[in-house]
Each structure stands twice: as structure tokens, then as C-alpha cells.
């Protein structure tokens, strides 16, 4: 794992990508920092952080697009998969290398509130709370990016898919808001989701009985709830979307609320996508 971690970090800095990422990141944050804090004479660093939370959508694909896709294309996955390392270690090594770059940048911007503190009052709790939220949000995007990159063997395709998916996550709540809130729409919506999930499941395990079984059970539960108490579905889509929306969770950190549920939410997002990436790698053996 350490070998992969070191190699990935080195690759980022032997090519331009690492430098480009860090400088763009610092430049964008710097601009917002100047406008939100310096020019408007405010000590609240969380304003800047919230404003730039879109930054991951733009910059994380830069780091993650090649991370798996390039291995697939150069056939170097053959080296990794025939070496005594597990798929989990491969994914973890890669995740940590990208995460380390993110942490480097965040270590730099963590000094901003301290610098501001020299000249006036800074609300440290919400400043650093938002920075922690920022790290978790970044980690989630990185995990998602690694997963999307593992699905293809072209950097360009990976970059485009990642960008589109990230963009959707950004507007998840707005999209949900525009969907009808009545219960029949929600029922149809969840039924479709179950079908899609079953298709994904079938693609991964190739076990027809299992897939159909799980599909029927899930659809059954949805129908039963619908027949029993249809009002439960009122506005359910919006609830689900905002529950899933990584960016709306982030608002809590910004307000200085340090909720364990939010931290666990981000950690599980990271875990789920890293887990899915290892499954994609393992699946290659069986195709």
C-alpha cells in the first residue's frame, strides 16, 4: 500500500498535475479570501470556505481522472494485480495519495484564520469547523472520483463522467426541488431506483436469481408501504436528495454545528465508493 501511495504522489509531481491542482486551488481560495475576508474586513473564514465548496467539482477530476483509468490503459494493472497486494490496498494507497495532496493545500489555508487573528477577532470554532467539513467533503469527492475513474480505461471519458456526476451532486437539492412532491410520483421514482440498483447489482455479481429475488423483495416493501400509508411518500424525493446531498450536509459545518451524523455520513460515502472501486477491480478477474 505504501509503495502505491508513494508512487502515486511521485507521479503527481513528476507531471504537472500536482502543481496545477495546488496552484489553482490556492488561487481560487485566495480570490475568495480577498473578497470575503480581506476587502470586506470580516474574520469569518467559513464564508470563504462555503463559497469555494464548488472547487472540488472543478479540481478533483483533475487528480482522479487518470488514477485508475490510466492503469487500465497502460496495462499496468497487470503488474498491480499480479503482485502480492490486495485490491483494497491498491485503492487505499491511491485514495491516500490524492487525499495527501488535498491535506497539503488545506494545511496551507488553515493558516489564514491565524494570520487574520493577528489583526482582529476570528471565530475559530466555525472557521476550523468549516475546514474539517471541507476536508470531509473533499474526501467524499475524491472517493467518488476514484470510483468513476475505475470504470473506464480512458482519462478523458473518466474526466467527463466525473465532471458531470460532480455537477449533479452540486445541484442535487435544486433538482429534487423541481420534482413533484405527490406520493404517486415518489412511488414510481423509488420503483425505478430499485430497478436501476438491481441492474447494477446484476452487472456486478451476474447472479440472476439473487438479483431478481432482491428486486422483488425491495419492490414489495415499497408497494406495501405505499398501500399501507401513501402519505409517507409525500415530499420523500426531496428528503432523500437532501439527505444524500453532500453539499447540504456541509452547511452544518459552516454554521459551526459539529454533528456526529454528518461526519459519519461523509465517512460512509468515502467508504462506500472506495469499496465499490475495489469491487470493480476484483470484478475484472471474473469477466
Amino acid at each position: 500500500m505504501l509503495a502505491i501511495f508513494k508512487k502515486e504522489l511521485r507521479s503527481y509531481f513528476t507531471s504537472m498535475i500536482g502543481y496545477v491542482f495546488i496552484s489553482l486551488f490556492l488561487a481560487i481560495i485566495g480570490i475568495f479570501f480577498i473578497f470575503n475576508n480581506l476587502l470586506s474586513r470580516q474574520g469569518n473564514f467559513e464564508y470563504t470556505i462555503t463559497n469555494v465548496s464548488f472547487i472540488f467539482v472543478l479540481l478533483v477530476p483533475l487528480l482522479t481522472m487518470r488514477i485508475m483509468a490510466e492503469e487500465n490503459k497502460q496495462k499496468t494493472d497487470q503488474l498491480l494485480l499480479t503482485s502480492p497486494v490486495t485490491a483494497g490496498e491498491i485503492v487505499m494507497g491511491k485514495f491516500l495519495s490524492v487525499f495527501a495532496i488535498l491535506l497539503t493545500v488545506i494545511a496551507l489555508i488553515s493558516t489564514y484564520p491565524l494570520i487574520m487573528n493577528l489583526y482582529g477577532e476570528v471565530p475559530f470554532a466555525s472557521s476550523y469547523g468549516s475546514i474539517i467539513g471541507f476536508i470531509l467533503l473533499g474526501g467524499s469527492y475524491i472517493a467518488l472520483g476514484i470510483f468513476l475513474s475505475s470504470l473506464t480505461d480512458s482519462q478523458v471519458v473518466a474526466a467527463i463522467i466525473t465532471f458531470i456526476v460532480f455537477f449533479i451532486t452540486l445541484f442535487m437539492e435544486n433538482i429534487a426541488g423541481s420534482i413533484s412532491t405527490n406520493h404517486s410520483t415518489a412511488f414510481v421514482f423509488f420503483s425505478v431506483i430499485v430497478v436501476i440498483l438491481c441492474l447494477i447489482l446484476w452487472n456486478m455479481v451476474r447472479n440472476l436469481m439473487l438479483t431478481i429475488g432482491i428486486g422483488i423483495i425491495a419492490e414489495g416493501i415499497i408497494t406495501a408501504i405505499y398501500l399501507y400509508n401513501p402519505t409517507l411518500y409525500d415530499g420523500a424525493i426531496v428528503k432523500v436528495f437532501s439527505w444524500l446531498s453532500a453539499t447540504s450536509r456541509f452547511d452544518n459545518f459552516y454554521m459551526g454545528i459539529f454533528d456526529l451524523a454528518d461526519i459519519i455520513f461523509y465517512l460512509s460515502i468515502i467508504f462506500v465508493f472506495l469499496f465499490l472501486s475495489t469491487q470493480v477491480i476484483k470484478k475484472k478477474r471474473w469477466s
Binding site: K7, S11, Q74
Partner: peptide, 18 residues
Amino acid sequence: PLYPELTVLEYLNFVAEL
């Protein structure tokens, strides 16, 4: 299975560690 962006030495060190 070579990484084009590494030097030969870097690559072999990586493989040894791997």
C-alpha cells in the same frame, strides 16, 4: 506494465517495494 512518467530506477524501486 511500465509507468511512462517514472525513471527506470524509480520504477524498479517501486516494483521492489510492491
